[in-house]
Amino acid sequence: MDDPVLELHNLSKSFGALRVTNDVCLKVERKTIHALIGPNGAGKSTLIGQIAGSILPDSGQVILDGEDISNVSVAGRTRRGLARSFQVSAVIPDFTVLQNGVLAVQGSRGIVYRFFRPALGEGAVVDQARTRIEAVGLADREHVPAAALSHGERRRLELAMATALDPKIFLLDEPMAGIGTDGSEEITTILDGLRHTAPVLLVEHDMDVVFRLADMVSVLVDGKILATGKPAEIQENPDVRRVYLGEDFEF
């Protein structure tokens, strides 16, 4: 199955003398959840930024579905099918849940330069936004401003916005960050379902979640990919155990 949705070729990035991404190559195959793990400061967020386009690599390429998108803007990458969620929850705080959803649908459909009709009067757009909001279980919170949501709800809203983009791949930067155990169960279920719509590149700290969900795991250490493989292989990989997990770490 060598038909990856996303390929990274030799991505490198330095901030001053600090090499945060070092010759990273990675392939995300279809219908998989591909987890990216690594200790703090390994350069995971920088890598996500480079894939999403908010950080420009010094060298290397990002290929999405066969197209080189290395020189495409953030918005352009999204329109080509790359949906990103942020490590720090990023929704529009003053907007209601529905408005957030509508914004995402507007973006994915390229409906922005309409000046005279109300945004919430565009039937098809609103319907699609509602569908996505229902899918993450926020239907009854539709008119609540995002700022008033609980942390877990906000993360779910973000996932709804990502799915509303109908992407070719999801780029999820720690979707569980900062939520309690009960909230994380719901999100795990949502994530599990995501792989049927599009593959996921998932940055996550919670090892339970990673090994429950992931079909493939890559380990990033000091800006380098140390190993890529099936979860079982990664668990057994001596390099990973030594460098990242500590000699006597038990999964």
């Binding site: 803007s73 918005a75 942020f86 529009i92 907007f95 409906i111 922005v112």
Partner: peptide, 24 residues
């Protein structure tokens, strides 16, 4: 309250978010 206004209003609050839904 138009789609344009919604997107513009969103840029004021979170520019990166608006870019990441595909809006320049």
């Amino acid at each position: 309250i138009s789609p344009f206004g919604l997107a513009l209003n969103a840029t004021r609050q979170n520019l990166a978010r608006v870019q990441s839904v595909g809006i320049e």
